[in-house]
Design a protein around this nucleic acid. Structure first.
Lengths: 164, 164
DNA sequence: TTTCGTGCAAAGTTTTTGCAGGTCT
DNA sequence: AGACCTGCAAAAACTTTGCACGAAA
């Protein structure tokens, strides 16, 4: 089930592909849909699994996921997040307000937050340097919010990936 | 030539190693010295090359660099910086004031800056979330400062690595 | 039908690991 | 001597690429 906002954005992506003479294939549609439906950060491998779950009958290959995500990133539809171990994680943008990340050093869990004061501070700092800011990434590392609150890390030591 | 500040820090690192029952070998000393003498971000491979330049007679292997950098990172003597392509870059900390990074999307050049307003903003934002901040990383991507100023990217397209 | 995309497998990168011999304490 | 390190090579983990066939325009 693809609800309104996702459907609209899907059209935008489709238009973007067509504009560049790229084809809108079954695989691409599935991958993009899945990326937009996922409210988590995902690796290429996870996105593949999620896509296959949604469409077990279709054939989708990891290489295709990589290729599609690359186009999406260039188009500004998803953003990559480099992490310390393993490869990169992605998240859709889909008109989201920019947000920063809070990463638990214990379990790898990633939370998001938005702080207007910080946003203005970045804007100002970049301007002061005469630097043309295109995008930015702030990550705060420490102990999980839930860990601090409940005394328990909801994501067990071995469960850094969570896509349910 | 190892000047004062580096020498002092070297002793600190050495003490840290010994405290943990780790040995202070010729390789480790060379690698750590080199890391502290370098005022640039370096990859493991670059650190190896720099070390070999400083001590052509010694034998140092890439695996040893990785192992040493790992210990240094755990001890808080260097910090890793995940980058979009290829592996991670490192930089020594050596009592430096914390700084943020400005990365040119054209040439990959990394500049640094420090902004007290931003620092306080991060502190405040983390506190507001009840998150225990251990460290943080802010990166602003855009066009090189020098590019904006001079109209020329000082680091030619193919020269993302610069360690002189 | 022409062009582009896909699956597959192979190659590329960067980082980690097992092992046997060498070095530090 | 004993524990820890190192170089080497092989393995791992992640991503990219060449190619022949299949799908989109």
């Amino acid at each position: 089930m693809v609800h309104g906002a996702v459907r609209a954005e899907l059209e935008t992506v489709k238009a973007h592909f067509k504009k560049d003479g790229l084809r809108w294939t079954q695989q691409r549609e599935l991958i993009v849909e899945t990326a937009f439906l996922t409210h988590e950060h995902f690796s290429a491998e996870q996105l593949l699994e999620l896509t296959r779950l949604r469409a077990p009958e279709a054939t989708v290959h990891l290489a295709t996921v990589y290729r599609t995500v690359q186009v999406l990133e260039e188009g500004g539809f998803v953003e990559g997040l480099e992490v310390e171990k393993g490869g990169r994680l992605f998240e859709h943008v889909l008109g989201h307000e920019h947000h920063d990340h809070v990463i638990c050093l214990e379990c790898g869990h990633i939370s998001e937050f938005h702080d207007e004061v910080l946003e203005q501070g970045k804007e100002f700092a970049a301007k002061k340097l005469g630097f043309e800011m295109r995008r930015h990434s702030l990550r705060i590392y420490g102990s999980c919010i839930a860990l601090a609150r409940d005394g328990v890390c909801p994501n067990a030591p071995a469960a850094a990936n969570k896509n349910t």
